[in-house]
Design a protein around this nucleic acid. Structure first.
Lengths: 220, 220
DNA sequence: TTATAATAGATTGTATAAAATAAGCAGAAC
DNA sequence: GTTCTGCTTATTTTATACAATCTATTATAA
């Protein structure tokens, strides 16, 4: 396997993204360029460029001469994001199932096993959300729509914060396990209609759980 | 009116975007940082940051240590892009029409008049695509979905290159004028189903014209 | 002759230093 | 007492300088 070269900017992007997704950097908190640069032992340029990239992903907001801060989504924005995902991912899945290989489905099955066993362990949230992303990407692999897939991944990075938060604080998306299994079964049967319906339901269910959790936390 | 401050990076973004959309910078051509910096009379840092932002918009591709180049879409990618737009914009229009104000519709009518008269004039392509974008955004204003609207605008920036190219070389999207009028009529009648159908048809029609044009140019 | 290694030039990536801008605060004017 | 002005400081933005990396060319050996 070829080792992949990474620029400092890319490394900083990954570290900061992880910090935001994990909640270590709380939303609204200003991200001071010098402080980050010192902490990560790089100059401010890679930090700036990393922040710019994260802005494009929607995780960070930049204001000229005021600096950057991690973004936060309110309930309405969570709604919007998950509904957008449901629509686009539904379409992507439909396109994928026409051409998907048995190989990809087998791989998805494997991931599902790991996904279930990941829940109890250390760093559950990190591992789980990564495997979850892998699982979905696997199902979309037949679509051969690079731009759409790319877009879906960006939207997922945004949603990921809330999924992780929910996983950590509330012990997980309660219905995700069985839903994944059902979804995979429909995919294996190449039953496009049911698979798409199930997927949309799955995404909107997690939206509902997260919104309920958010409003509950807000009330307290 | 408040004057808005712009950083050099933002100015460079706008200039480069315009150059790419207008075709002055041809796709595939490497974008040398020093050359651009000299030309625009800034240092390389704002140029780099501008290129990073354009990468997020999909107009530029960055490769570590090799530099940036303007991206080019092949026929399959044009397909994908326009179909994605049809789906998302259709959904956005449906959500918008429920709440859209008469004021917004009146504004759309005004824009349409300008749009028709813009075709013959100087700089037709630039003005036309800007007004076209305004027209569509006007129709989506009732949706109150900032993230989706933002996404649509990014996708449109990508599509814009091909629309402009087609406008310049082939004299315009032949059916756009009447289609816009029909679309607006359905919107004014709050006829959601017909409006959405018409919008999708409109987007997919321009896709077809552009694809036909692309393949014809390729053959020659 | 072909393939491989070495080298030079070009180009990008990063660090440091300087300039521009914004926010906060003290003091004057009303 | 309030409002405004000008200064100070903190922070970002940009420029310059240097280091790392890539590409193409030439030289060398099989």
């Amino acid at each position: 396997m070829a080792i992949e070269y990474k620029t400092r900017t890319q490394l900083v992007v990954e570290i900061l993204r992880e910090k935001i997704l994990s909640g270590e950097i709380v939303a609204g908190q200003p991200l001071r360029q010098v402080a980050l640069a010192d902490e990560l032992n790089v100059s401010r340029i890679p930090v700036r460029e990393a922040l710019l990239q994260l802005e494009a992903e929607g995780l960070v907001a930049f204001e000229p001469h005021k600096g950057a801060s991690a973004t936060e989504l309110n309930a309405a924005q969570v709604d919007e994001l998950f509904e957008l995902r449901a629509m686009i991912e539904g379409d992507l899945l439909a396109a994928s199932l026409v051409h998907i290989t048995d190989d990809a489905l087998a791989q998805a099955t494997d991931i599902l096993v790991n996904l279930d066993s990941a829940l109890g362990k250390e760093n559950a949230a990190n591992t789980w959300s990564e495997l979850n992303s892998d699982f979905h990407n696997c199902l979309y692999s037949g679509a051969e729509r690079p731009q759409t897939t790319n877009l879906v991944n960006i939207l997922n990075k945004n949603a990921d914060r809330y999924i992780r938060m929910h996983l950590l604080w509330a012990g997980g998306i309660s219905k995700a396990g069985p839903e994944h299994a059902e979804l995979l079964a429909f995919c294996q049967a190449r039953d496009i209609d049911n698979a798409v319906t199930k997927l949309k339901q799955h995404i909107l269910n997690s939206r509902d759980e997260i919104k309920a959790f958010l409003s509950q936390r807000e009330a307290s």
